[in-house]
Every structure is written in C-alpha cells, then in structure tokens.
Amino acid sequence: MEILKYIQSLLNQELVYGINDCHILALTIIDIQLETNYRDIYYGKYHDPKSGWLYSKNTEYPTLRDLLNTVGTTKQSIPNNGCVLLKGNHASTYWNGKVLVLNNTNNKYELTHFCSSDEWEIYYIGK
C-alpha cells in the first residue's frame, strides 16, 4: 500500500531532477520494498541528467541497472505491482496494469496502461 501512496503522490507533479525524477522514483520503490536508504544517497544531489550521471558514477552503484541487478531479478513476463521498469535511461514502476510515465506535453507524471510491447526491462525487487 505504501508504494501506491507514493505513486499517487507523484501524479500531476512536475519533474524535478534529484527530487522526483525517474531514478529517484525507482530508488524510492526499492527502499519501500527492502527497507533500505538508497534514495537518500541521491536525493537533492543533482539538478539535471548530466549532473546526476556525474554524481552517481562515484557511488557504489554507478548506474541504476547496477543496483537493480544486485537487489532484484529480471524476467520477461507481466510485472507484479511494485516492479521497477527500465527502458534505456528511463525508469518507472508497475501498478495494477499501469505504468507511471512523464507526460511530454506538460512535464508531469501520469499513469498509462502497461504495454508489453514497450520493451521494458522488468525487475522484481528482492532475490
């Protein structure tokens, strides 16, 4: 239920790098499920994609994928609620047939139907 509350808190929020961008979203989803503090390592430490990349390359997990490969497993199937999804450099989460995405028109988060043809990498958190 905590994941759903977090997703709902992001709906219609404008993207702010280092605060609520897709990587912070994924880290928060991981923290909720594993009771970890990965989000705290990155929160507020960058203000655009380049500064985020420069900051993260000096951490224990230089990429989100590196962390996900440590704390989760990837499968090509229909995701479960709370799975972290990756496509290129973009991350999201799955909930009840929907995925949280950024609307390119207004730069705010919204839920859209999950389509398996979108070629997401699906990470189940926890081993």
Rank of each mutant, 00 (worst) to 15 (best):
R65L: 09
N80F: 08
P79R: 05
N69L: 13
L85W: 03
V71R: 00
L68F: 03
S77M: 15
N80E: 13
L64V: 06
I78K: 05
V84S: 13
G72W: 00
N89R: 08
Y61T: 05
V71F: 01
R65E: 12
K87C: 06
Y61F: 10
D66M: 12
R65H: 10
Q76L: 13
N81W: 09
H90M: 09
T63Y: 04
T63P: 07
T70V: 09
E60G: 12
T59F: 10
L67H: 01
L68I: 05
H90W: 08
V71H: 02
L86Y: 03
G82T: 04
K87H: 06
N58P: 05
R65K: 13
T59S: 08
N80Q: 14
K87P: 03
N69E: 11
N80T: 12
N89I: 15
G72V: 09
N81T: 12
T74K: 14
L67G: 02
K87F: 06
N81K: 13
L67I: 09
N58W: 05
T59D: 09
C83I: 03
E60Y: 14
T70F: 02
N81C: 05
E60A: 15
H90D: 09
T73V: 15
H90C: 10
L64A: 00
T70L: 01
N58M: 04
G72F: 03
A91R: 03
I78F: 14
T63R: 01
Q76V: 07
C83P: 05
L67F: 10
L64T: 03
Y61W: 15
G72D: 04
T70C: 00
N80H: 11
N58D: 07
N80M: 05
C83Y: 06
L85C: 04
S77W: 14
L67S: 03
D66N: 11
P62F: 08
N81Q: 09
H90S: 09
P62Y: 10
N80R: 08
V84K: 15
L85D: 01
G72A: 08
L85R: 03
G88D: 07
G72C: 08
L85G: 01
R65N: 13
G88W: 14
Y61H: 14
N69R: 12
T74E: 09
G88S: 11
C83T: 07
N89D: 13
G88I: 15
P79E: 06
L86E: 09
N80G: 13
H90V: 06
L64F: 05
G72I: 13
T63S: 11
Y61E: 09
K75W: 13
E60K: 15
L64E: 00
T73M: 02
H90K: 08
K75L: 08
N89F: 10
L85I: 11
T59C: 09
V71T: 07
V71L: 00
L64W: 02
L64Y: 03
E60S: 12
D66R: 10
N69F: 10
K87N: 11
A91T: 04
N58V: 01
L85N: 02
G88T: 13
N81A: 04
N80S: 13
V71S: 00
S77H: 12
T73D: 03
L67E: 02
C83S: 15
K87A: 04
T63L: 07
L68R: 02
H90I: 07
S77Y: 13
G88V: 15
T73A: 02
I78R: 04
T63A: 12
